[in-house]
Design a protein around this nucleic acid. Structure first.
Lengths: 182, 182
DNA sequence: CCGTCGCGTCTATTATTCTAAACAGAATCC
DNA sequence: GGATTCTGTTTAGAATAATAGACGCGACGG
């Protein structure tokens, strides 16, 4: 058994601020069971582990997936967002570049007249966002539209697309894309 | 036991074109064990299930995650965002509910004192966001922090978490989560 | 037809896990 | 200081899972 089920369960229980007895009661097992499992003195059956996790509640999938996320940074002050843009388009990332994440969340800022280039972008995945300020022309496939504050978009990234700030003021967007492009 | 570990294991074994005996040999268990597990006549211990899966090979996380996996509108005017919140917390979705998407992007608005409930939330996937206005206290696992305009967050949704508007003004957030929770 | 090989299932025994209850330490209260 | 109440741990016995090997079934070849 390479995986530390016991320590893992203990960590989960602690995160929820439960005692062994509290969790045991919710889960319908005895506190001794939790104790033995947490000490890795037994390897619980799937059914009993499921009962225990139901008391949290947490799925088995989540339980076994959890160790992937040890303790990455959770909070980011506004000046901690990594700026990876150029002169005309500022892209400020939530989280570091190339981190092991499922998504990229960005604060984008387009100068007046700025665009993402004459060539249409096309890559894997999906992306969407909401416009905060300014006006941007978004072209996706054949369609094109000017979006203003509060408007939003969502499309498959494989469809060729292009952003262009058609207004006189900067345009700000919060966007998300999966899988991460940065 | 709501989850069909046995049928699940059988499906995995079939996908790899292995017989019970072949898999048993690779895994270092007996064929009877595999048979009993697949018929759900026993609930294997985590350690023995791990041994079995090592013979495939497949991780426990993958095993329990597996069953989860089984021309859309592009532009959304601000009043087209579906509001699925309640009185205290407004959640305005980019795209329809239950659409087949890889992400959920939302414009969230918390009234003063509003929170996501005393019980900590916990679900699969990852989520992040950027604060637009107001101040919100975010608790993730053990850590807690008050975030203001421009600040951001990103974490694995399986870690218990909670949002609470600690300021006197509404708090607005643009958030994204994957896979979609709505 | 019979032997052989593959398959999955079943049974008796052994090994392990789970329960119930006792135990020990620390904090709180009067 | 001696209950009370909260921790987590330990133990004997009951419940459950794993093993080794037998069993039945079907396919293939001699």
């Amino acid at each position: 058994m390479s995986i530390d089920v016991g320590g893992h369960l203990r960590a989960v229980r602690m995160m929820y601020g439960l005692s062994q007895r509290e969790l045991a009661k919710r889960a319908g097992v005895t506190n001794g069971t939790i104790s033995l499992i947490e000490q890795n003195r037994v390897s619980p059956s799937v059914s009993s582990l499921k009962k225990v996790l139901d008391g949290v509640p947490m799925s088995l999938a989540d339980f076994f997936t959890l160790d992937l996320q040890e303790s990455p940074q959770v909070f980011y002050a506004r000046d901690e967002l990594a700026d990876i843009g150029d002169r005309d388009v500022s892209l400020r990332l939530v989280g570091a570049k190339r981190a092991n994440r499922a998504m990229t969340i960005m604060h984008e800022r387009y100068r007046p007249k700025a665009d993402t280039g004459a060539d249409m972008l096309s890559h894997k995945g999906e992306e969407g966002g909401i416009i905060l300020t300014g006006h941007i022309e978004l072209t996706v496939g054949g369609q094109s539209r000017v979006l203003g504050p509060g408007d939003a978009y969502y499309f498959a990234s494989a469809v060729p697309h292009r952003f262009r700030n058609v207004g006189d003021e900067p345009c700000e967007i919060i966007s998300a894309s999966t899988p991460p492009t940065f």
